[in-house]
Design a binder for these strands. Structure first.
Length: 557
RNA sequence: UGGGGUGUCGCCAAGUUGGUAAGGCACAAGGUUUUGAUCCUUGCAUGCGCAGGUUCGAGUCCUGCCACCCCAGCCA
Protein backbone atom coordinates (compact mmCIF):
# COMPACT_ATOMS: atom_id res chain seq x y z
CA UNK A 1 0.00 0.00 0.00
CA UNK A 2 1.06 3.53 -0.67
CA UNK A 3 2.15 4.97 2.63
CA UNK A 4 2.91 8.50 1.48
CA UNK A 5 0.58 10.58 3.64
CA UNK A 6 0.37 13.23 0.95
CA UNK A 7 -1.15 10.87 -1.54
CA UNK A 8 -4.41 9.04 -1.65
CA UNK A 9 -3.68 5.32 -1.49
CA UNK A 10 -4.82 3.36 -4.46
CA UNK A 11 -8.53 2.69 -4.57
CA UNK A 12 -11.02 1.78 -7.24
CA UNK A 13 -12.01 5.38 -7.92
CA UNK A 14 -8.46 6.56 -8.24
CA UNK A 15 -7.72 3.69 -10.58
CA UNK A 16 -10.72 4.61 -12.67
CA UNK A 17 -9.69 8.25 -12.82
CA UNK A 18 -6.15 7.32 -13.74
CA UNK A 19 -7.57 5.45 -16.69
CA UNK A 20 -9.74 8.41 -17.67
CA UNK A 21 -6.74 10.70 -17.58
CA UNK A 22 -4.61 8.28 -19.51
CA UNK A 23 -7.24 8.06 -22.20
CA UNK A 24 -7.53 11.82 -22.36
CA UNK A 25 -11.14 11.89 -21.20
CA UNK A 26 -12.31 15.42 -20.23
CA UNK A 27 -9.00 16.64 -21.68
CA UNK A 28 -7.30 14.98 -18.74
CA UNK A 29 -9.13 17.21 -16.29
CA UNK A 30 -10.25 15.99 -12.87
CA UNK A 31 -12.74 18.32 -11.25
CA UNK A 32 -14.79 17.36 -8.24
CA UNK A 33 -17.17 18.94 -5.83
CA UNK A 34 -18.18 18.57 -2.22
CA UNK A 35 -21.93 19.15 -1.93
CA UNK A 36 -23.13 19.34 1.69
CA UNK A 37 -26.64 20.34 2.54
CA UNK A 38 -26.39 23.14 5.12
CA UNK A 39 -28.65 21.40 7.59
CA UNK A 40 -26.18 20.03 10.09
CA UNK A 41 -22.54 19.78 11.03
CA UNK A 42 -19.97 17.75 9.16
CA UNK A 43 -18.78 14.49 10.70
CA UNK A 44 -15.87 12.16 10.19
CA UNK A 45 -17.75 10.37 7.43
CA UNK A 46 -17.73 13.65 5.54
CA UNK A 47 -14.00 13.84 6.18
CA UNK A 48 -13.66 10.63 4.19
CA UNK A 49 -15.56 12.18 1.29
CA UNK A 50 -13.58 15.39 1.63
CA UNK A 51 -10.25 13.57 1.52
CA UNK A 52 -11.37 11.66 -1.54
CA UNK A 53 -12.80 14.51 -3.60
CA UNK A 54 -10.23 17.13 -2.65
CA UNK A 55 -7.37 14.65 -2.60
CA UNK A 56 -8.03 13.26 -6.04
CA UNK A 57 -8.60 16.65 -7.67
CA UNK A 58 -5.39 17.95 -6.18
CA UNK A 59 -3.37 14.95 -7.22
CA UNK A 60 -4.54 15.26 -10.78
CA UNK A 61 -4.07 19.03 -10.81
CA UNK A 62 -7.77 19.74 -11.00
CA UNK A 63 -10.04 21.61 -8.63
CA UNK A 64 -12.82 21.04 -6.16
CA UNK A 65 -15.83 23.25 -5.65
CA UNK A 66 -17.65 23.61 -2.39
CA UNK A 67 -21.32 23.60 -3.23
CA UNK A 68 -24.08 24.00 -0.72
CA UNK A 69 -26.99 21.86 -1.78
CA UNK A 70 -29.54 24.31 -0.52
CA UNK A 71 -32.74 23.29 -2.24
CA UNK A 72 -34.85 22.70 0.84
CA UNK A 73 -35.31 25.98 2.73
CA UNK A 74 -37.31 24.38 5.51
CA UNK A 75 -34.32 22.38 6.72
CA UNK A 76 -31.42 24.64 5.97
CA UNK A 77 -29.77 27.60 7.60
CA UNK A 78 -26.72 29.78 7.16
CA UNK A 79 -25.38 28.87 10.59
CA UNK A 80 -24.53 25.49 9.11
CA UNK A 81 -22.94 27.12 6.09
CA UNK A 82 -20.42 28.83 8.34
CA UNK A 83 -19.78 25.74 10.45
CA UNK A 84 -19.22 23.62 7.36
CA UNK A 85 -16.76 26.07 5.82
CA UNK A 86 -14.90 26.26 9.09
CA UNK A 87 -14.57 22.48 9.33
CA UNK A 88 -13.38 22.06 5.75
CA UNK A 89 -10.81 24.81 6.15
CA UNK A 90 -9.65 23.31 9.40
CA UNK A 91 -8.96 20.05 7.63
CA UNK A 92 -6.81 22.05 5.27
CA UNK A 93 -8.80 21.78 2.08
CA UNK A 94 -9.15 24.68 -0.34
CA UNK A 95 -12.10 24.88 -2.66
CA UNK A 96 -11.94 26.70 -5.95
CA UNK A 97 -15.42 28.18 -6.04
CA UNK A 98 -17.91 28.48 -3.26
CA UNK A 99 -21.20 27.70 -4.94
CA UNK A 100 -24.75 27.03 -3.96
CA UNK A 101 -27.47 25.22 -5.79
CA UNK A 102 -29.51 28.35 -5.20
CA UNK A 103 -27.12 30.20 -7.52
CA UNK A 104 -28.66 28.15 -10.29
CA UNK A 105 -32.32 28.55 -9.44
CA UNK A 106 -33.03 30.69 -12.52
CA UNK A 107 -31.18 28.39 -14.85
CA UNK A 108 -32.75 25.35 -13.25
CA UNK A 109 -36.18 26.86 -13.74
CA UNK A 110 -35.51 27.57 -17.39
CA UNK A 111 -34.30 24.05 -17.95
CA UNK A 112 -37.42 22.73 -16.27
CA UNK A 113 -39.60 24.85 -18.55
CA UNK A 114 -37.75 23.45 -21.49
CA UNK A 115 -38.53 19.93 -20.38
CA UNK A 116 -42.18 20.93 -20.09
CA UNK A 117 -42.08 22.37 -23.58
CA UNK A 118 -40.51 19.19 -24.89
CA UNK A 119 -43.21 17.18 -23.17
CA UNK A 120 -40.67 15.49 -20.90
CA UNK A 121 -42.14 16.93 -17.73
CA UNK A 122 -45.66 17.54 -16.52
CA UNK A 123 -47.51 19.11 -13.66
CA UNK A 124 -49.15 16.50 -11.51
CA UNK A 125 -52.03 17.44 -9.28
CA UNK A 126 -52.26 14.25 -7.30
CA UNK A 127 -51.77 14.71 -3.58
CA UNK A 128 -48.77 13.11 -1.84
CA UNK A 129 -50.73 10.05 -0.74
CA UNK A 130 -52.04 9.48 -4.22
CA UNK A 131 -48.62 9.87 -5.72
CA UNK A 132 -47.34 7.21 -3.39
CA UNK A 133 -50.17 4.91 -4.36
CA UNK A 134 -49.64 5.44 -8.05
CA UNK A 135 -45.93 4.80 -7.69
CA UNK A 136 -46.53 1.11 -7.05
CA UNK A 137 -44.28 -0.97 -4.86
CA UNK A 138 -40.88 -2.59 -5.04
CA UNK A 139 -42.37 -5.57 -6.81
CA UNK A 140 -45.36 -4.03 -8.58
CA UNK A 141 -45.12 -1.44 -11.32
CA UNK A 142 -46.72 1.94 -10.83
CA UNK A 143 -49.43 3.40 -12.96
CA UNK A 144 -49.65 6.66 -14.80
CA UNK A 145 -51.11 9.67 -13.09
CA UNK A 146 -54.37 10.86 -14.64
CA UNK A 147 -52.63 14.19 -15.16
CA UNK A 148 -49.71 12.67 -17.01
CA UNK A 149 -51.09 13.51 -20.44
CA UNK A 150 -51.92 17.11 -19.83
CA UNK A 151 -51.23 19.19 -22.91
CA UNK A 152 -47.90 20.98 -22.99
CA UNK A 153 -49.60 24.38 -22.90
CA UNK A 154 -51.51 23.50 -19.75
CA UNK A 155 -48.38 22.17 -18.08
CA UNK A 156 -46.51 25.31 -18.93
CA UNK A 157 -49.32 27.49 -17.65
CA UNK A 158 -49.62 25.53 -14.44
CA UNK A 159 -45.88 25.45 -13.84
CA UNK A 160 -45.64 29.21 -14.34
CA UNK A 161 -48.49 29.76 -11.96
CA UNK A 162 -46.81 27.47 -9.44
CA UNK A 163 -43.83 29.76 -9.68
CA UNK A 164 -46.07 32.81 -9.40
CA UNK A 165 -47.34 31.58 -6.10
CA UNK A 166 -50.91 30.91 -7.13
CA UNK A 167 -51.12 27.54 -5.41
CA UNK A 168 -50.88 26.18 -1.94
CA UNK A 169 -48.09 23.78 -0.97
CA UNK A 170 -48.79 20.25 -2.08
CA UNK A 171 -51.32 21.28 -4.68
CA UNK A 172 -49.13 20.56 -7.66
CA UNK A 173 -45.73 19.19 -8.38
CA UNK A 174 -43.62 19.07 -11.51
CA UNK A 175 -42.63 15.56 -12.50
CA UNK A 176 -40.40 14.09 -15.13
CA UNK A 177 -42.15 11.90 -17.66
CA UNK A 178 -40.05 8.76 -17.67
CA UNK A 179 -41.53 5.35 -16.93
CA UNK A 180 -44.00 4.42 -14.22
CA UNK A 181 -43.24 0.74 -14.69
CA UNK A 182 -39.49 1.01 -14.32
CA UNK A 183 -38.05 -1.49 -11.86
CA UNK A 184 -36.04 1.43 -10.53
CA UNK A 185 -38.41 3.47 -8.38
CA UNK A 186 -36.39 6.59 -9.03
CA UNK A 187 -37.36 6.46 -12.67
CA UNK A 188 -41.12 6.35 -11.99
CA UNK A 189 -41.75 9.97 -12.93
CA UNK A 190 -39.74 11.57 -10.15
CA UNK A 191 -40.90 14.93 -8.80
CA UNK A 192 -38.42 17.67 -9.55
CA UNK A 193 -40.20 20.80 -8.31
CA UNK A 194 -42.46 21.31 -5.34
CA UNK A 195 -44.22 24.31 -3.89
CA UNK A 196 -42.79 25.68 -0.65
CA UNK A 197 -43.97 29.00 0.64
CA UNK A 198 -40.88 29.27 2.76
CA UNK A 199 -38.18 31.90 2.71
CA UNK A 200 -34.77 30.64 1.66
CA UNK A 201 -31.69 31.66 3.62
CA UNK A 202 -30.07 32.87 0.42
CA UNK A 203 -32.82 33.83 -1.97
CA UNK A 204 -35.30 35.12 0.56
CA UNK A 205 -38.86 35.00 -0.73
CA UNK A 206 -37.89 35.23 -4.37
CA UNK A 207 -39.08 31.68 -4.95
CA UNK A 208 -41.97 29.60 -3.77
CA UNK A 209 -41.10 26.58 -5.82
CA UNK A 210 -37.86 24.74 -5.20
CA UNK A 211 -36.07 22.18 -7.37
CA UNK A 212 -35.36 18.81 -5.82
CA UNK A 213 -32.11 16.94 -5.40
CA UNK A 214 -32.17 14.69 -8.46
CA UNK A 215 -32.89 17.54 -10.81
CA UNK A 216 -30.58 20.01 -9.15
CA UNK A 217 -27.53 17.95 -8.47
CA UNK A 218 -26.66 16.68 -11.90
CA UNK A 219 -27.30 20.05 -13.51
CA UNK A 220 -25.22 21.85 -10.91
CA UNK A 221 -22.39 19.41 -11.51
CA UNK A 222 -22.70 19.99 -15.23
CA UNK A 223 -22.78 23.78 -14.95
CA UNK A 224 -19.64 23.75 -12.85
CA UNK A 225 -17.77 21.49 -15.23
CA UNK A 226 -17.38 18.71 -12.74
CA UNK A 227 -15.81 15.61 -14.29
CA UNK A 228 -16.17 13.11 -11.48
CA UNK A 229 -19.07 13.39 -9.09
CA UNK A 230 -18.40 11.23 -6.06
CA UNK A 231 -21.16 10.30 -3.67
CA UNK A 232 -22.18 7.49 -1.38
CA UNK A 233 -23.74 4.17 -2.30
CA UNK A 234 -27.28 5.28 -1.52
CA UNK A 235 -27.25 7.30 -4.74
CA UNK A 236 -26.36 4.36 -6.91
CA UNK A 237 -30.01 3.88 -7.83
CA UNK A 238 -30.20 7.54 -8.77
CA UNK A 239 -27.45 7.38 -11.35
CA UNK A 240 -29.79 6.38 -14.21
CA UNK A 241 -31.83 9.46 -13.39
CA UNK A 242 -28.74 11.64 -13.16
CA UNK A 243 -27.75 10.49 -16.60
CA UNK A 244 -31.28 10.70 -18.00
CA UNK A 245 -31.65 14.36 -17.10
CA UNK A 246 -28.31 15.44 -18.50
CA UNK A 247 -28.90 13.44 -21.64
CA UNK A 248 -32.40 14.77 -22.28
CA UNK A 249 -31.19 18.29 -21.66
CA UNK A 250 -28.25 17.64 -23.96
CA UNK A 251 -25.92 19.27 -21.49
CA UNK A 252 -22.47 19.72 -22.96
CA UNK A 253 -20.79 18.60 -19.76
CA UNK A 254 -21.87 15.20 -18.48
CA UNK A 255 -20.05 14.34 -15.24
CA UNK A 256 -19.58 10.76 -14.19
CA UNK A 257 -21.18 9.84 -10.91
CA UNK A 258 -19.20 7.31 -8.89
CA UNK A 259 -20.40 5.86 -5.63
CA UNK A 260 -18.45 4.57 -2.67
CA UNK A 261 -19.53 3.20 0.70
CA UNK A 262 -19.97 5.53 3.60
CA UNK A 263 -17.95 5.24 6.76
CA UNK A 264 -19.41 3.54 9.80
CA UNK A 265 -17.63 3.89 13.10
CA UNK A 266 -18.35 1.60 16.02
CA UNK A 267 -19.98 2.91 19.19
CA UNK A 268 -21.28 6.03 17.51
CA UNK A 269 -23.80 7.23 14.95
CA UNK A 270 -23.13 9.12 11.78
CA UNK A 271 -26.54 9.91 10.35
CA UNK A 272 -27.38 13.58 10.28
CA UNK A 273 -30.85 12.93 11.61
CA UNK A 274 -29.45 10.91 14.48
CA UNK A 275 -26.78 13.41 15.38
CA UNK A 276 -29.39 16.12 15.37
CA UNK A 277 -31.49 14.07 17.73
CA UNK A 278 -28.62 13.82 20.21
CA UNK A 279 -28.16 17.56 20.03
CA UNK A 280 -31.82 18.50 20.17
CA UNK A 281 -32.57 16.19 23.08
CA UNK A 282 -29.60 17.56 25.01
CA UNK A 283 -28.08 14.12 25.25
CA UNK A 284 -24.85 15.84 24.30
CA UNK A 285 -23.60 19.38 24.71
CA UNK A 286 -24.34 20.68 21.21
CA UNK A 287 -22.75 19.80 17.87
CA UNK A 288 -19.28 20.38 19.29
CA UNK A 289 -19.57 17.90 22.13
CA UNK A 290 -16.20 16.09 22.28
CA UNK A 291 -17.95 12.73 22.37
CA UNK A 292 -19.51 13.27 18.97
CA UNK A 293 -17.98 12.12 15.68
CA UNK A 294 -18.59 15.59 14.25
CA UNK A 295 -15.49 17.35 13.04
CA UNK A 296 -16.19 20.13 15.54
CA UNK A 297 -16.55 17.58 18.30
CA UNK A 298 -13.36 15.78 17.37
CA UNK A 299 -11.54 19.08 17.12
CA UNK A 300 -12.72 20.13 20.55
CA UNK A 301 -11.76 16.73 21.87
CA UNK A 302 -8.25 17.43 20.64
CA UNK A 303 -7.96 15.41 17.45
CA UNK A 304 -5.75 17.08 14.88
CA UNK A 305 -6.70 17.56 11.25
CA UNK A 306 -3.70 15.44 10.31
CA UNK A 307 -4.85 12.55 12.46
CA UNK A 308 -8.29 12.59 10.89
CA UNK A 309 -6.84 12.64 7.41
CA UNK A 310 -4.52 9.81 8.34
CA UNK A 311 -7.50 7.88 9.60
CA UNK A 312 -9.27 8.39 6.27
CA UNK A 313 -6.16 7.22 4.50
CA UNK A 314 -6.03 4.07 6.59
CA UNK A 315 -9.67 3.09 6.18
CA UNK A 316 -9.51 3.41 2.42
CA UNK A 317 -12.29 3.69 -0.13
CA UNK A 318 -14.37 0.78 -1.38
CA UNK A 319 -17.96 -0.12 -2.10
CA UNK A 320 -18.23 -2.64 0.68
CA UNK A 321 -20.01 -2.24 3.97
CA UNK A 322 -17.55 -1.30 6.68
CA UNK A 323 -17.65 -0.92 10.45
CA UNK A 324 -14.42 0.58 11.56
CA UNK A 325 -13.22 0.05 15.10
CA UNK A 326 -12.54 3.09 17.25
CA UNK A 327 -9.07 1.65 17.89
CA UNK A 328 -8.20 2.62 14.33
CA UNK A 329 -9.00 6.27 15.02
CA UNK A 330 -7.25 6.29 18.36
CA UNK A 331 -4.16 4.73 16.86
CA UNK A 332 -3.89 7.62 14.39
CA UNK A 333 -3.92 10.34 17.01
CA UNK A 334 -1.62 8.41 19.34
CA UNK A 335 0.92 7.90 16.58
CA UNK A 336 1.01 11.62 15.92
CA UNK A 337 1.01 12.81 19.51
CA UNK A 338 3.59 10.28 20.64
CA UNK A 339 6.02 12.23 18.50
CA UNK A 340 4.75 15.78 18.81
CA UNK A 341 3.17 16.17 22.23
CA UNK A 342 5.27 17.57 25.03
CA UNK A 343 5.17 15.60 28.24
CA UNK A 344 3.86 17.10 31.44
CA UNK A 345 2.63 15.83 34.77
CA UNK A 346 -1.06 15.72 35.41
CA UNK A 347 -2.67 14.10 38.43
CA UNK A 348 -6.26 13.12 37.81
CA UNK A 349 -7.30 11.85 41.22
CA UNK A 350 -4.89 13.47 43.66
CA UNK A 351 -3.87 12.14 47.01
CA UNK A 352 -1.34 13.99 49.14
CA UNK A 353 1.98 12.46 49.89
CA UNK A 354 4.31 13.85 52.57
CA UNK A 355 8.05 13.28 52.57
CA UNK A 356 8.93 12.94 56.20
CA UNK A 357 12.67 13.22 55.88
CA UNK A 358 12.46 16.56 54.16
CA UNK A 359 12.01 19.95 55.80
CA UNK A 360 9.08 22.24 55.15
CA UNK A 361 11.27 24.70 53.35
CA UNK A 362 13.41 22.21 51.46
CA UNK A 363 13.15 22.50 47.72
CA UNK A 364 15.05 20.38 45.23
CA UNK A 365 14.69 21.61 41.65
CA UNK A 366 14.42 18.66 39.30
CA UNK A 367 15.07 18.64 35.56
CA UNK A 368 12.38 16.94 33.50
CA UNK A 369 12.62 16.16 29.81
CA UNK A 370 9.78 17.53 27.75
CA UNK A 371 10.10 14.48 25.54
CA UNK A 372 12.01 11.32 26.37
CA UNK A 373 13.22 10.82 22.81
CA UNK A 374 13.52 14.34 21.53
CA UNK A 375 16.05 16.48 23.32
CA UNK A 376 15.32 19.46 21.14
CA UNK A 377 12.02 19.80 22.89
CA UNK A 378 13.99 20.89 25.92
CA UNK A 379 13.55 20.50 29.62
CA UNK A 380 11.66 22.11 32.43
CA UNK A 381 12.11 22.31 36.15
CA UNK A 382 9.73 21.01 38.79
CA UNK A 383 10.43 21.70 42.44
CA UNK A 384 10.50 18.61 44.57
CA UNK A 385 9.44 19.45 48.10
CA UNK A 386 8.00 17.69 51.11
CA UNK A 387 4.41 17.72 49.90
CA UNK A 388 3.46 16.31 46.56
CA UNK A 389 0.44 14.81 44.86
CA UNK A 390 0.26 11.44 43.26
CA UNK A 391 -2.70 9.61 41.75
CA UNK A 392 -4.85 7.49 44.04
CA UNK A 393 -4.60 4.65 41.54
CA UNK A 394 -0.86 4.55 42.07
CA UNK A 395 -1.05 3.52 45.71
CA UNK A 396 -2.34 0.40 47.41
CA UNK A 397 -2.12 -0.68 50.99
CA UNK A 398 -1.34 -4.14 49.77
CA UNK A 399 -0.91 -5.69 46.38
CA UNK A 400 0.52 -8.71 44.64
CA UNK A 401 3.83 -8.83 42.79
CA UNK A 402 2.24 -7.71 39.55
CA UNK A 403 1.45 -4.28 40.93
CA UNK A 404 4.46 -2.12 40.17
CA UNK A 405 3.45 1.08 41.90
CA UNK A 406 3.56 2.32 45.48
CA UNK A 407 2.53 -0.14 48.15
CA UNK A 408 2.63 0.44 51.88
CA UNK A 409 6.12 -0.48 53.01
CA UNK A 410 7.39 -0.57 49.44
CA UNK A 411 9.35 1.64 47.14
CA UNK A 412 8.63 3.33 43.86
CA UNK A 413 10.38 5.93 41.76
CA UNK A 414 8.92 9.35 41.19
CA UNK A 415 9.25 10.08 37.49
CA UNK A 416 12.47 12.04 36.88
CA UNK A 417 12.96 12.15 40.64
CA UNK A 418 13.87 10.11 43.69
CA UNK A 419 12.89 6.72 44.96
CA UNK A 420 10.43 6.99 47.80
CA UNK A 421 9.15 4.49 50.33
CA UNK A 422 5.66 4.46 51.79
CA UNK A 423 6.07 4.38 55.56
CA UNK A 424 2.53 4.81 56.80
CA UNK A 425 -0.83 6.23 55.88
CA UNK A 426 -3.33 8.56 57.46
CA UNK A 427 -7.01 7.79 57.14
CA UNK A 428 -10.09 9.85 57.77
CA UNK A 429 -12.83 8.69 60.11
CA UNK A 430 -14.65 7.03 57.23
CA UNK A 431 -11.62 5.00 56.31
CA UNK A 432 -10.48 6.95 53.29
CA UNK A 433 -6.77 7.45 52.91
CA UNK A 434 -6.07 11.15 53.23
CA UNK A 435 -2.31 11.17 53.28
CA UNK A 436 0.61 8.91 52.57
CA UNK A 437 3.72 9.44 54.65
CA UNK A 438 6.90 8.55 52.81
CA UNK A 439 10.63 8.87 53.04
CA UNK A 440 12.84 9.54 50.08
CA UNK A 441 16.26 8.20 49.26
CA UNK A 442 18.51 11.17 48.40
CA UNK A 443 20.97 8.90 46.64
CA UNK A 444 18.65 7.76 43.89
CA UNK A 445 18.41 10.74 41.57
CA UNK A 446 19.36 9.53 38.12
CA UNK A 447 20.62 6.24 39.46
CA UNK A 448 19.40 3.02 40.94
CA UNK A 449 19.59 2.43 44.65
CA UNK A 450 22.24 0.04 45.97
CA UNK A 451 21.24 -3.55 46.27
CA UNK A 452 17.55 -3.09 45.59
CA UNK A 453 15.43 -3.10 42.52
CA UNK A 454 12.69 -0.52 42.14
CA UNK A 455 10.27 -1.69 39.51
CA UNK A 456 7.76 1.08 39.30
CA UNK A 457 7.71 4.70 38.23
CA UNK A 458 4.83 7.01 39.00
CA UNK A 459 4.05 10.58 38.10
CA UNK A 460 3.66 13.33 40.66
CA UNK A 461 3.27 17.06 41.13
CA UNK A 462 4.61 19.39 43.84
CA UNK A 463 1.66 20.43 46.01
CA UNK A 464 2.97 23.96 46.23
CA UNK A 465 2.98 24.57 42.49
CA UNK A 466 0.16 22.31 41.35
CA UNK A 467 -2.57 24.11 39.45
CA UNK A 468 -6.10 22.82 39.85
CA UNK A 469 -7.86 21.75 36.69
CA UNK A 470 -11.19 20.37 35.73
CA UNK A 471 -10.47 17.31 33.64
CA UNK A 472 -12.91 15.62 31.24
CA UNK A 473 -12.48 11.95 30.46
CA UNK A 474 -14.39 10.36 27.62
CA UNK A 475 -15.58 6.92 26.80
CA UNK A 476 -17.73 5.68 23.93
CA UNK A 477 -20.91 7.69 23.56
CA UNK A 478 -22.90 4.49 23.10
CA UNK A 479 -22.67 1.31 25.07
CA UNK A 480 -23.29 -0.87 22.04
CA UNK A 481 -21.05 -1.13 19.00
CA UNK A 482 -23.84 -0.71 16.46
CA UNK A 483 -26.45 1.66 17.89
CA UNK A 484 -28.07 1.98 14.47
CA UNK A 485 -28.97 -1.66 14.25
CA UNK A 486 -30.21 -1.88 17.81
CA UNK A 487 -33.93 -1.81 18.20
CA UNK A 488 -33.93 0.11 21.46
CA UNK A 489 -34.31 3.83 21.83
CA UNK A 490 -31.17 5.94 21.91
CA UNK A 491 -31.66 7.00 25.48
CA UNK A 492 -31.23 3.39 26.54
CA UNK A 493 -28.06 2.95 24.53
CA UNK A 494 -26.07 5.92 25.78
CA UNK A 495 -23.06 4.94 27.82
CA UNK A 496 -23.62 6.51 31.25
CA UNK A 497 -19.87 6.89 31.59
CA UNK A 498 -19.33 8.56 28.24
CA UNK A 499 -18.25 11.65 30.13
CA UNK A 500 -16.64 11.63 33.55
CA UNK A 501 -14.96 14.55 35.15
CA UNK A 502 -12.39 14.90 37.85
CA UNK A 503 -10.80 17.71 39.75
CA UNK A 504 -7.11 17.21 39.34
CA UNK A 505 -3.84 19.09 39.22
CA UNK A 506 -1.51 20.01 36.40
CA UNK A 507 1.78 21.77 35.94
CA UNK A 508 1.73 25.59 36.04
CA UNK A 509 2.88 25.81 32.43
CA UNK A 510 -0.55 24.72 31.29
CA UNK A 511 -2.01 28.06 32.32
CA UNK A 512 -0.32 29.50 29.28
CA UNK A 513 -1.28 26.64 26.96
CA UNK A 514 -3.34 27.48 23.91
CA UNK A 515 -6.18 25.58 22.36
CA UNK A 516 -3.80 24.35 19.69
CA UNK A 517 -1.49 22.71 22.23
CA UNK A 518 -1.66 19.01 22.95
CA UNK A 519 0.32 17.39 25.69
CA UNK A 520 0.84 14.01 27.19
CA UNK A 521 0.20 13.60 30.88
CA UNK A 522 2.87 11.03 31.58
CA UNK A 523 1.40 7.58 32.03
CA UNK A 524 -2.13 8.86 31.50
CA UNK A 525 -2.80 9.96 27.96
CA UNK A 526 -3.01 12.88 25.61
CA UNK A 527 -4.85 16.02 26.64
CA UNK A 528 -5.77 19.46 25.38
CA UNK A 529 -7.35 22.66 26.59
CA UNK A 530 -11.12 22.78 26.12
CA UNK A 531 -11.74 25.44 23.52
CA UNK A 532 -15.09 26.50 24.88
CA UNK A 533 -14.91 26.27 28.66
CA UNK A 534 -11.33 26.75 29.70
CA UNK A 535 -9.72 29.98 30.92
CA UNK A 536 -6.31 30.66 32.46
CA UNK A 537 -7.74 30.92 35.94
CA UNK A 538 -10.10 28.01 35.54
CA UNK A 539 -8.56 25.30 33.43
CA UNK A 540 -10.76 22.78 31.69
CA UNK A 541 -8.79 20.00 30.09
CA UNK A 542 -10.01 17.24 27.81
CA UNK A 543 -8.48 13.83 27.46
CA UNK A 544 -8.12 13.16 23.75
CA UNK A 545 -7.23 9.52 24.24
CA UNK A 546 -5.62 7.45 26.96
CA UNK A 547 -2.23 5.84 26.52
CA UNK A 548 -2.38 2.19 25.60
CA UNK A 549 -2.66 0.30 28.83
CA UNK A 550 -1.61 -3.31 29.09
CA UNK A 551 -1.82 -3.12 32.89
CA UNK A 552 -5.54 -2.58 32.82
CA UNK A 553 -6.01 -6.04 31.36
CA UNK A 554 -3.65 -7.70 33.80
CA UNK A 555 -5.24 -5.98 36.77
CA UNK A 556 -8.66 -7.27 35.85
CA UNK A 557 -7.82 -10.95 36.05
C1' U B 1 -41.31 -12.88 -5.34
C1' G B 2 -38.69 -6.04 -8.62
C1' G B 3 -34.18 -3.21 -9.14
C1' G B 4 -29.30 -1.81 -7.51
C1' G B 5 -24.96 -3.27 -4.64
C1' U B 6 -21.45 -6.10 -1.50
C1' G B 7 -19.04 -10.70 0.28
C1' U B 8 -10.36 -11.74 1.04
C1' C B 9 -7.67 -12.97 8.93
C1' G B 10 -11.53 -10.19 14.95
C1' C B 11 -11.77 -4.78 12.16
C1' C B 12 -10.17 -1.91 7.69
C1' A B 13 -8.02 -3.30 3.13
C1' A B 14 -4.36 -4.59 -1.34
C1' G B 15 -4.94 -8.09 -4.99
C1' U B 16 -5.53 -4.06 -12.74
C1' U B 17 -3.94 -9.10 -18.56
C1' G B 18 -5.47 -16.29 -14.19
C1' G B 19 0.76 -18.11 -11.88
C1' U B 20 0.71 -19.89 -6.44
C1' A B 21 -2.87 -14.40 -0.57
C1' A B 22 0.41 -6.88 0.62
C1' G B 23 -0.17 -3.55 4.47
C1' G B 24 -2.56 -1.12 8.73
C1' C B 25 -5.50 -1.74 13.31
C1' A B 26 -6.30 -5.32 17.12
C1' C B 27 -4.25 -9.43 19.51
C1' A B 28 -0.14 -12.80 21.41
C1' A B 29 4.99 -13.87 22.77
C1' G B 30 9.95 -12.07 23.57
C1' G B 31 13.69 -7.77 24.06
C1' U B 32 14.83 -2.48 25.45
C1' U B 33 12.81 1.14 28.84
C1' U B 34 13.02 6.18 35.23
C1' U B 35 5.87 6.65 31.01
C1' G B 36 2.75 -1.06 32.68
C1' A B 37 3.75 4.30 26.90
C1' U B 38 7.12 4.41 22.86
C1' C B 39 10.60 1.43 20.21
C1' C B 40 12.54 -3.44 18.28
C1' U B 41 11.81 -8.79 17.03
C1' U B 42 8.51 -12.68 16.14
C1' G B 43 3.67 -14.89 15.45
C1' C B 44 -1.21 -14.22 13.45
C1' A B 45 -5.88 -16.72 6.07
C1' U B 46 -2.77 -24.35 2.63
C1' G B 47 -7.19 -19.69 2.75
C1' C B 48 -10.28 -15.58 -0.45
C1' G B 49 -19.38 -16.44 1.17
C1' C B 50 -20.77 -21.77 -0.55
C1' A B 51 -20.91 -25.70 -4.41
C1' G B 52 -19.51 -27.24 -8.98
C1' G B 53 -16.82 -26.35 -13.70
C1' U B 54 -12.76 -24.54 -17.25
C1' U B 55 -7.27 -24.75 -16.76
C1' C B 56 -0.81 -27.45 -16.01
C1' G B 57 -2.44 -23.58 -12.56
C1' A B 58 -8.35 -19.50 -10.13
C1' G B 59 -9.34 -14.74 -4.88
C1' U B 60 -8.96 -13.56 -10.04
C1' C B 61 -12.78 -16.94 -15.81
C1' C B 62 -17.84 -19.80 -16.20
C1' U B 63 -22.41 -21.84 -13.87
C1' G B 64 -25.61 -22.35 -9.81
C1' C B 65 -26.64 -21.19 -4.94
C1' C B 66 -26.33 -18.48 -0.02
C1' A B 67 -25.86 -14.15 3.14
C1' C B 68 -25.98 -9.11 4.02
C1' C B 69 -26.92 -3.79 2.58
C1' C B 70 -29.77 0.12 -0.21
C1' C B 71 -34.45 1.82 -2.85
C1' A B 72 -41.62 2.75 -2.51
C1' G B 73 -39.84 11.72 0.64
C1' C B 74 -43.67 16.89 -2.71
C1' C B 75 -35.49 14.93 2.07
C1' A B 76 -30.54 15.15 0.44
Amino acid sequence: MDTDPMKTPSNFIKTLIENDVREGKNDGLVCTRFPPEPSGYLHIGHAKALCLSFGLAKEFKGFTNLRFDDTNPSKESSVYVDAIKMDISWLGFHWKHECRASDYFVELYQLAERLVLENKAYVDSLNPDEIREYRGTLTNPGKNSPYRDRPVEENLDLFRRMKAGEFAEGKHVLRLKIDMSSPNLNMRDPAIYRIRHTAHHETGDEWCIYPMYDFTHCISDSIEGITHSLCDLSFEDHRPLYDWILRELEMSCHPQQIEFSRLNLQYTVMGKRKLRQLVDQDIVDGWTDPRLPTLSGLRRRGFTAASIKEFCRRVGVTKSENNVELAMLYSCIRDELEISARRVMGVLNPIKLVIQNMGDKDVIPLQLANHPKNESMGQRILNFSNEIYIDRADFREEANRKYKRLVLGGEVRLRYGFVIKAERIVKSSDGEITKIICSYDPDTLGKNPEGRKVRGVIHWLPAEDAVPAHINLYENLFSVDFPDSDGRDYSELINPNSLSTCQGFVEPSLIAATVEDRFQFEREGYFCIDSELSSPNSLVINRIVALKDSWEKIDQV
